[in-house]
Amino acid sequence: MSARTHDMGGAPAGPIDRSEPPVTLTEQRVDAMMALLREPPLGLFSTDAMRRAIEDLAPDVYLGSAYYERWCYAMRDLLVETGVLTDAEIADRLAAVQQRFETEGAPP
C-alpha cells in the first residue's frame, strides 16, 4: 500500500515556485461559495467532508488541477451528494454556459 495522492508529506518533488500570482475572481468566488455553503446558517457539509471530496478526486485530476479548480470539482460533488443540485441540471447548465461564451466571448 502507499499514500493517497493528497497525502504527500515526504514525497520526492522539485524546487518550490515562489511566485505569487494574484488570486483571480473565479478563485475568489469558489473560495467564498465554499465557505458560505459550509458555514452556518447553511452548514451543508463540514470541512472534513470538503477535504474528503477533494481527496476523492482521481489522482490525475488532483495532480493536474489548480488549487481552486480542485475546490470547484469538490463543490460540485458535494452539492450533488447533499441533494442541492443534480448531475443532470449541472450538466445542462454547464453546456448552456459554454454555448453562451462560444457565441459571446470569454467568461467574465
Binding site: F45, S46, D48, R51
Partner: peptide
C-alpha cells in the same frame, strides 16, 4: 472525529 464528519456524521 474527522473520519466521521467527512461522511456527514456528527463525529
Amino acid at each position: 472525529n474527522p473520519e466521521d464528519c467527512a461522511v456527514h456524521k456528527s463525529g
